[in-house]
């Protein structure tokens, strides 16, 4: 879907992006992770020409991005930035309708689309359609930002730390909901963040960048459990492993052994099951229709290690 070949972006002598090659599959959620100043935002901005590359080629759907009129290229790609950038003088309806209006849609189909998108991001259309951004909470504004980026149903979404300004509790909810939406709609997403947990939770693959170069590009499991790179190790410091567990559902690993106690649902994550074990002091917790043991969780992590090896 997106193909970057030997792309460099320099500001004078400084190379923000250094001879970078990258490939994003259709329907994939690729997270670009790295410390500030590593060039991850610039990489993203090169894709929709918000920044002009110095050399190299970028192709979107097998077409060189230089063959598009800049504005048309951007209209076809959803774009969400950290501060959201909702237009403060327009209500939610007008914000979401921006790109469809630029594309010359009819008002009736825009109306339908706005309502559909508001429902998709979990906001009641009748309550939110005519609200101004100043009347929204941070989480609500972020949902509107996502809805706005999806307005013209683009195949590709570029997201630059979209949930960075949201409080931790709402952030987790937004992340989970967004992952579901992305899976359901099959959008190709490039997602920039410096939050390790967010990267592991959301990414199909994680691209770790440092000094404008790709250090590692692999699935979250492999990046966390089998890294052979010192920078990646120092970046994670073993922190990612619990988040790996939060990607996995209890239902997939449970055994049909009955167990006494308060049951958790099969949709719960392994991380939640492990937390419960730590809280109750037992090495097995009941799940609806069976139970899951501490050893099983150890095996899950271990199996991932073995799969790689």
């Amino acid at each position: 879907m997106i193909e970057m070949q030997n792309v460099t972006k320099s500001y004078g002598d400084f190379k923000a992006v250094d001879n970078l090659s990258l490939h994003v599959d259709s329907g994939e959620l690729l997270v670009i992770l790295g410390p500030s100043g590593c060039g991850k935002s610039t990489t993203l901005r090169l894709m929709n020409k918000m920044a002009e590359r110095t050399s190299g080629t970028i192709k979107i759907k097998d077409k060189d991005i230089d063959s598009f009129v800049e504005e048309d290229l951007r209209k076809g790609i959803g774009y969400v930035i950290q501060s959201i950038g909702l237009f403060p003088h327009m209500n939610v309806w007008k914000n979401i309708a921006t790109v469809p209006q630029l594309l010359g849609w009819e008002n009736s189909s825009i109306d339908r689309r706005v309502d559909e998108l508001l429902l998709l991001v979990g906001l009641k259309p009748e309550n939110y359609r005519y609200k101004k951004p100043s009347q929204l909470s941070g989480g609500e504004a972020q949902r509107v930002g996502v809805a706005r980026a999806l307005a013209s149903d683009p195949d590709i979404l570029l997201m630059d730390e979209p949930f960075g300004a949201v409080d931790p509790i709402n952030r987790l909810r937004l992340q989970k909901e967004f992952r579901q939406i992305q899976r359901r709609l099959g959008k190709t997403v490039v997602f920039v963040t410096h939050d390790i947990d967010e990267a592991i939770l959301l990414g199909d693959r994680i691209c770790i960048m440092n000094h404008g170069k790709v250090v590692s590009l692999d699935t979250p499991e492999n990046v966390v459990l089998h890294s052979k790179d010192d920078f990646v190790d120092s970046f994670f410091k073993g922190e990612g492993i619990l988040t790996i567990l939060s990607r996995k559902n209890v239902g997939d690993y449970m055994e049909e052994i009955p167990w006494e106690g308060e049951e958790i649902v099969q949709d719960s994550t392994l991380k939640e099951a492990l937390s419960l074990m730590l809280l109750t002091g037992e090495d097995r917790v009941p799940v609806k229709g069976g139970s899951i043991s501490f050893n099983r969780i150890l095996q899950v992590v271990g199996r991932d290690i073995n799969e790689k090896a």
Binding site: N48, R74, F87, T98, V99, L102, L158
Partner: peptide
């Protein structure tokens, strides 16, 4: 950021 967002949306 508002101007950036507008540009990013293809205005």
């Amino acid at each position: 950021n508002v101007v950036q967002a507008a540009k990013g949306m293809g205005m």
